[in-house]
């Protein structure tokens, strides 16, 4: 059974029909990427999975369990963590306090301590700056913090919304390496990206989203070689 199954979802903002019958599945252990242009509905898809938006039609289920009746925070308990678009770190709290917030819903203190160690190994920069006010971190460090904060929830499924946004190419590369590392350690990842080039390099499979609909899906390799993807998302003529 798939870890995440989004089936024929229709989501609206008032009258705006943002997702028009979207279906995606993510298997345990995978990195799946969702690529698409601005306004395609990528963030909306993640919001729908997190329960921020309840779809008018269709269903989201985690390991076969329909998430419809659950509130946002209850979905977090079930092991879904979001790294929001634009990072949205708690900029007036310290790095440490941000990470601590990420583990908010957990009560296993030993596990939390372990995860602190784990994220500090993944992001040594954050360890150096653990007592710095998060708002004063550089953009790249803030992205690391947002990712680390989500890891502190010890999620089974991590949703990343455009982690490469606004970062220099070197940093983008290192963020994507970290994402692969996190995945190797056992976390399933749904990665939303505009940077199709990088996303298709780290992902196992991918979906292409256009104005609220999936127009293409397949293995990362197949998508990389698809002429439409090459033309529209990879800039190859």
């Amino acid at each position: 059974m798939a870890l995440l199954e989004v089936r024929d979802v229709h989501s609206y903002y008032g009258n705006i029909h943002a997702l028009k019958g979207l279906s995606i599945t993510v298997e345990e252990g995978e990195i799946v990427t969702l690529i698409g242009a601005n306004g395609a509905g990528k963030t909306t898809t993640l919001r729908t999975i997190c329960g921020v938006i309840k779809p008018r039609q269709g269903s989201v289920s985690l390991e076969g369990e329909n998430l419809e009746p659950f509130k946002i925070h209850e979905i977090v308990y079930k092991g879904v963590a979001l790294v929001p678009e634009g990072r949205r770190i708690f900029s007036r709290l310290t790095v440490y306090e941000n990470l601590d917030m990420g583990a908010y819903h957990r009560i296993d203190n030993d596990g939390i301590a372990e995860d602190f160690d784990r994220v500090f190994v993944l992001f040594p920069r954050l360890k150096e700056r653990r007592n710095q006010v998060a708002g004063t971190l550089s953009g790249g460090e803030q992205q690391m913090l947002a990712t680390a904060r989500a890891l502190m929830a010890h999620p089974r499924l991590m949703l990343l919304d455009e982690p490469s946004m606004g970062l220099a190419p070197v940093l983008v590369e290192s963020i994507f390496e970290t994402i692969q590392e996190i995945n190797r350690e056992g976390t399933t990842i749904l990665l939303v990206e505009q940077n199709a080039h990088m996303a298709l390099q780290v992902a196992h499979r991918g979906y292409v989203l256009q104005t609220g609909e999936i127009v293409l899906d397949g293995t990362a390799e197949a998508l990389r070689n698809n002429p439409m993807v090459q033309k529209s998302y990879l800039g190859i003529e």
Binding site: C50, V52, I72, H73, V76, Y77, A81, L82, P84, R88, F90, S91, R92, L93, M101, G102, Y104, H105, R149, A153
Partner: peptide, 11 residues
């Protein structure tokens, strides 16, 4: 600090 993110932390 941030209502939306607070919810995403499981609050």
């Amino acid at each position: 600090e941030d209502e939306d993110v607070a919810q995403a932390m499981g609050i």
